Computed example of a mutant assay.
Amino acid sequence: MEEKVLDNLRNAVIGGKPRLAVQETEQAIRDGYPKEQILNEGLLPAMHEISREFKKDEPDLAHTLSCAKAMKNSLNLLQANLEEETFPSKGLVIIGTCGGDLHDIGKNVVAVMFEGIGAHILDLGVDVSSERFVKNVREHPEVRVVCISCLLTTSFREMERTVQNLRKERKRSGLDFIIMVGGAPVTQEIADKMGADIYTENAAKAAEAALPYL
Rank of each mutant, 00 (worst) to 15 (best):
G16S: 04
G16N: 06
P18S: 00
R19Y: 14
A21C: 00
Q23F: 04
T25P: 00
E26G: 00
I29F: 05
D31Q: 11
G32Y: 11
P34R: 04
K35V: 15
K35M: 15
E36M: 13
Q37V: 15
Q37P: 15
Q37F: 12
G42L: 10
G42M: 12
L43R: 09
L43H: 07
H48E: 15
H48P: 07
E49T: 14
E49V: 10
I50Q: 03
I50W: 01
S51Y: 09
F54W: 09
K56G: 09
K56E: 12
L61I: 06
A62H: 14
A62I: 15
L65Y: 10
C67T: 02
C67P: 05
C67I: 01
A68K: 05
A70Q: 05
M71K: 02
K72F: 06
S74Y: 08
S74F: 06
L75S: 00
L75C: 06
L77D: 05
L77F: 05
L78W: 14
L78H: 10
N81M: 14
E83V: 11
E85Y: 07
T86S: 13
T86G: 05
T86Y: 08
T86A: 13
F87T: 03
P88W: 02
S89R: 14
K90P: 14
K90A: 09
I95W: 07
G96I: 05
G96P: 11
G99D: 07
G100I: 07
L102Q: 03
H103C: 06
D104W: 11
D104F: 02
I105L: 14
I105F: 04
G106F: 05
G106I: 09
G106H: 08
K107E: 07
K107H: 11
V109C: 06
V110A: 09
V110N: 10
V112E: 07
M113D: 07
M113Y: 09
M113P: 01
G116N: 02
I117W: 01
G118Y: 05
A119T: 12
A119C: 10
H120I: 15
G125T: 01
G125C: 06
V126M: 00
V126S: 02
D127E: 03
D127T: 01
S130A: 11
E131G: 13
F133S: 04
F133E: 13
V137Y: 03
V137Q: 08
E139Y: 08
P141F: 02
P141G: 10
V143F: 10
